[in-house]
């Protein structure tokens, strides 16, 4: 049970994020929900590479040869970078939407429909 806690937390974070996305009407809060989903996925990635008592995967002066998996951390790092780019793009879109539509409410952003 305790060993699975990180995975459960990751799942809960993702669900919180998705619930935020579908219940909030403010576009910026929706992007925040997306960021929470991203945090959950990152936690999931890092948790898959964790190993009990493992050191950071740096071989110079390592206290033991038992190390956590660096691939998963590299993946999480890549995803963080991608997440920054995505969030920046989305927020800049919202900025323009707010200027042009005068509202950051998702229910007002429906000039394209039908």
């Amino acid at each position: 049970m305790f060993a699975n806690l990180p995975f459960i937390t990751a799942g809960i974070l993702i669900i919180i994020g998705i619930v935020t996305i579908v219940t909030q009407h403010n576009l910026i809060k929706m992007v925040m929900g997306l960021a929470v989903v991203e945090a959950g996925v990152n936690l999931m990635l890092v948790a898959t590479g964790y190993r009990e008592g493992g050191a950071a995967p740096i071989f110079t002066n390592a206290p033991s040869t038992e190390m956590v998996m660096p691939t998963a951390q590299a993946m999480a790092l890549t995803n963080i970078v991608i997440g920054i780019a995505t969030t920046a793009l989305l927020l800049s879109f919202i900025l323009i939407i707010f200027r042009k539509y005068g509202s950051a409410d998702v229910r007002d952003m429906r000039r394209l429909k039908g």
Binding site: I18, I21, V22, H25, M30, V106, R107, M109, R110, R111, L112, K113, G114
Partner: peptide, 17 residues
């Protein structure tokens, strides 16, 4: 069919989920 295409992003996400 036509009213389903509301144009609201929340609905799009809900359909996907």
């Amino acid at each position: 069919a036509v009213p389903l295409h509301t144009g609201i992003l929340t609905d799009y996400v809900l359909w996907y989920i």
